[in-house]
Amino acid sequence: MANSTHGLVKALFQMVWADDIVSPEEVEALTSILRQLGFSLSEVICLLDKNLSEPPDDRSPVQIEEIFPSREDQKMALQALMTICFSTGSIDPEQVGYIEGLVMRMGLSAHELEELRKQATEATC
């Protein structure tokens, strides 16, 4: 697994665990994102089995902006995280904090953020 993909996967699981409750909607959204990232069904099963049985030891936010040099890749990663965030229909403060920090570090404009939010919301519908 490439370092960038590994980092994104770690961030996705951190997002799922941000509020310490893993909902079925989050698992479904996560499964769909992992498949889109190119993981096979078996790999997804193993990843979910390994990373959802207990909260991650390391909760320090993954520096998405560092592992993805390209702006487009950063935005794609952020959109994936927002898809998890919006999957339950309600946004948890811890999840918002995670997203906000990332948006600040990436220096996204309000317009760009709104575009990503729309795409992420559509992905969860």
Partner: peptide
């Protein structure tokens, strides 16, 4: 008990 994980499948 340790809490479990449910992974939806369609296989």
């Amino acid at each position: 008990p340790h809490l479990g994980v449910y992974i939806p499948l369609n296989v």
